[in-house]
Design a protein around this nucleic acid. Structure first.
Lengths: 167, 167
DNA sequence: ACTTTATGTCAGCCTTGTTGACATTCCAAG
DNA sequence: CTTGGAATGTCAACAAGGCTGACATAAAGT
């Protein structure tokens, strides 16, 4: 087995023991369920799933984004995304405009209805996050974000930081 | 819209602005992908999925647990869990023993092979977590756990804290 | 003209969630 | 003791949403 769990090196490394890491892993698992629970409930009522939420979220964040860009943010195949986008367009929540510069591209926008659903979902999710942040306090929130950022793959961190500095 | 985004109340509430919450939400989304990436790769090779990982993890954490208990931890239907357990049992990674007291119950254990896969998966996931923890430092890790715990539903927090204090 | 890029679509597969129906076992009330 | 309900777990069938592969179209780039 790995020697990663050793607890003495002269420095203060108690937070890197296997047991501490295990707690972090389980915290992440249980917390993610809470994180998605509220939007999931709203979506289930309307016959959508988490995939629709993700598409709506990032179209809202970067209106006019192309399918390809969305693909790279979401990390799914175009077939998979296309199925979701098709239903959102059919239902009038998303509008797809042919690019003016490059007519191969489709630029995606939320319609009024789409924006309304986005607000409903993000408000629910934000309230959960707000409760957790308030309870934990500003210092904890800062640590929370540091650890999460360090946990991302390089490409995801790229997307994250780009969106972070306003998109 | 909610007034949650206001930034002034006399106190230091800048960390609760809608924009800060949005960053937290996106951090959670991107980080969770990194969190599951390494085990997912290992599992795909062996023809298993994330659901198998979850079952293996919690059986390892609480050997002899019943199906019902596992159900409540995982938050899925018994039918869904059953399918996963069946393949794990068929493949000789998990052993299911009929309860001695109550013969309706099945008590679950990892076999040698099951324990070996568990180690492979948890080592990979722990290394990712270790890298993130090390990079962020002990204070950040403490905040990370505080926020995650505050984000859980009550029932999940029950499971989490029970497991936390060694199980 | 030819190739590459961006997108969409069809078909088919897998995992993993769901509900419904059913078997077994336990326990408690009559 | 029996019987009916509750708890536990299994089997079957369906849906969402991942995936791959093949192919069509249109626009750009060379």
């Amino acid at each position: 087995m790995s020697d990663g769990g050793r607890q003495s090196s002269g420095e203060d490394l108690l937070f890197l023991t296997d047991d501490q890491l295990r707690k972090g892993i389980e915290a992440m698992f249980f917390a993610y369920r809470g994180f998605t629970a509220d939007p999931d409930r709203i979506l289930a009522d309307k016959g959508y799933g988490r995939a629709h939420h993700r598409a709506i979220h990032f179209i809202n964040r970067a209106p006019g984004t192309t399918v390809n860009n969305l693909l790279s943010i979401l990390g799914v195949t175009k077939q998979s995304l296309n199925r979701v986008l098709r239903t959102l367009i059919e239902d009038g929540l998303v509008e797809s405009r042919v690019g003016s510069r490059d007519k191969r591209e489709r630029h995606l926008f939320l319609t009024e209805d789409g924006a309304a659903l986005e607000r409903e979902l993000s408000t629910a999710q934000r309230e959960r996050m707000r409760g957790a942040f308030r309870q934990a306090g500003p210092a904890a929130v800062s640590g929370f974000k540091q650890v999460l950022e360090a946990m991302m793959d390089a490409e995801m961190r790229r997307h994250y930081t780009r969106l972070k500095e306003h998109g």
